[in-house]
Structure formats: structure tokens, C-alpha cells
Design a binder for these strands. Sequence first.
DNA 1: CCTACCGATCGGTAGG
DNA 2: CCTACCGATCGGTAGG
Lengths: 199, 199
Amino acid sequence: MNVAKRKPRRNNESNRREELLRVSAKLFREKGFDGTSIRDISAAAGMHSGSPFYHFKTKQDILVAVMEQGLAEGLRRTEEVMALALPPEQRLKELIRAQLGTILEEGSDFIPVLLYDWRSLTLANRRRIVALKDRYDALWQQVIDDLKRAGHMPGDAQLVRLLILGAVNWTGTWYRAGGRLSLDEVAEGCARLFLQGER
Amino acid sequence: MNVAKRKPRRNNESNRREELLRVSAKLFREKGFDGTSIRDISAAAGMHSGSPFYHFKTKQDILVAVMEQGLAEGLRRTEEVMALALPPEQRLKELIRAQLGTILEEGSDFIPVLLYDWRSLTLANRRRIVALKDRYDALWQQVIDDLKRAGHMPGDAQLVRLLILGAVNWTGTWYRAGGRLSLDEVAEGCARLFLQGER
DNA sequence: CCTACCGATCGGTAGG
DNA sequence: CCTACCGATCGGTAGG
């Protein structure tokens, strides 16, 4: 039957683990955690159906690992922007652009899984991941607080953060690559909308 | 065993159908379409496991019915706002308030299922529902176009609609009733953010 | 990692 | 709507 067409062997075990995470992130994003079976994942990674359990104890552990890797990568990109010496208006725009990339660029399926499949996490794992997510949110809050102090942002600063991040995170549901707008244009439009009359 | 505690019989068949939709919407919102079994739905409605299929041909049909009912109700509320004689800034705020209610009020699980479980729809059903959803979007676009014509809104009007609706629809992932902010306050904060300096 | 398998659960149905 | 059931699929495991 030749169920699994073997790809060229890699002798590095962690390569296979990474590959599993990559295909899992893609499948979870497309079909959801509950809509994706271990067999879907195995097949996409060129393995047999029991083999993912050599790398992960449970399917839920794969979900957690996907989300943690996404957060690590997203935090890295976000902190890069924070390290730049920029005026807060400019910094917000760059932050938005980085987040758009984390959600919409080719192969960026890890953070979308976090965003759109949160409810599939067990309560214990939610607590674990919230700790990382809080650091993420704190960086955004910092920029928005700066803008507010400078008089460039109206109303409750925490609400503003949730609304801006909401608008950005929601792009994953409608944006299509190769469409009318580039990511840079979306980021530009975002910044203009939220910083109206400031630039 | 007495599997299902019988509720008092209703002799109206459509009452049971409505009840099924109500509990399905709630369960789909909490656990997702794929995370909810027919047995979950049956139990919540006080039926035996095969009985939902007396009212709906497939589980997918329940999902479609939930989304269509949500859209019908949402369209009704939206059109009510459109019928009011209001300046466009005020109209946007009322539109936002109505949408927040449709997503966040007690028992408002139908539109959230549409928003957060879109990927569980078959392609054929997506086409069917997109037609309704387009009318919804068109009403929002109308208000935003008005604002743009009056010079109160910067940039690409379609992008602005997607961003504002995104911020509003995303509230379903973080807003908790009884928290720091009321729905009116969120609506107010939204309008202030998007219409900065206009009021 | 593969092989061979298990018990549980799934959506759905026939017949009343 | 309930009863009794079916075939398919699920996550996961033991043993190599």
C-alpha cells in the first residue's frame, strides 16, 4: 500500500519535531484543533499514524508547543521593534506591521493558532501560556501609554490596546495575500485610523 | 438508567427546534463546532442522542441554521439603527453599540458562532451565508463612506470598515460581563478612538 | 519511528 | 421523538 512516501531521512530528531509543529500549525489554522486528526498530522509530515506520539505525549501537547513557539517568535519580533529609537507614533506603526507579519506572512501559522484556537486549550495549559501572552500585551500597553501621555490617544488606555490589537488580529480572517492591499498598506491604514490627525 | 430527565412536554414542534438552535449556539460558541457532539446537544436540550436528526438532517445543517438566525437578528438590529435620523458620527457609535450587544449580551451566541466558527462551514454553505453577510457589511460601509465624504475618516474606506469591525468583533474574545467596563463604555471608547478629534 | 491494535466516541439511520 | 444500532474514525499504546 505504501501509505507514507518517505522523504529523505534526516538524522536529526529535532528536525522531525519541528516539522511536526510546522504542519500541525498549518492544519490547526486551516481546520481547527478539533477538526485536525493525528492522522492528518502524520500524513502531512510523512509519518505513520502512531509516530507523532514518539515526539509528543498527547495531541494537546502539540497544540501547546505550537502556541509557545508562536509566542516566542512574536515576542522576539516585538522586542526588536521596542529596541528601536522611535517616536511613539512611529513605534506603534512598526509594532502593527510586525504583528501583521506574524499573522499574515507565508508560513506564519503559529500565532493564528494561538489567536483562533484558544478555547481548545485545557485550563491548566491556558494558565501556562497566559504568562507569556501577558509579556506580549505589556509591550503594546507600554507604547499606547506613551502615546496617551503625549496626548495622542483618547480614552481608557487598556481598552485602546484591546481595540487596536483586535483590529490587527482580526485581519487573519479576511486578508488574502496578493489582494488589493499589501501588508505595508494595511499597517499604514491602521496607523492612520488610530492616530488620526497626528501625522 | 433514565438517561434524559424529561422537561414538561411542549406540543409545539418549532419550540423544540428553536431550543435546539439555542443550546447548539451556546455549545458551538464555548467548544467550537468540531468540539461539540450531537450527544452534547441532545443532552443540553433534554433529548436522546438520535433525536436532533428529527429536526435537522445533519449536524452541519444545525450550524448553518444557527448562523442564519444570528445574521437575521443582527441585520434586524443594524437596520433599526440605519433607520434613525442621525449624523454619521452618532450613527457609527450606535452601530457599534448594536454590534457589541449582538456579540456580548447574555444569550447572544449566534453571531459569535458565525464569527469564530466560519471555517467549519462547507464551501457550499459558505456561499449561501456570504450573501446575507454581504448585506450586513454593506450597511457598515454606507456609514463609513458617509463619514469619509464628510472628511471624518482617513484612508481606504473598505479597509477602515474591516478594521473597525475587527476591533468590535474581537471583543468577543476578551470582554466579560460584570467587568470593569460596560457595553456602553466600550462603544463610547470605540467611537472616540476611531473618530478622534471629531466630537 | 513503524506495526498492529484497542476501547471510546462519533455522526447518522431504520423502524416504530 | 425514542430505541437500538452501525460503520467509521478518533486519540493513544505496547512492543519492537
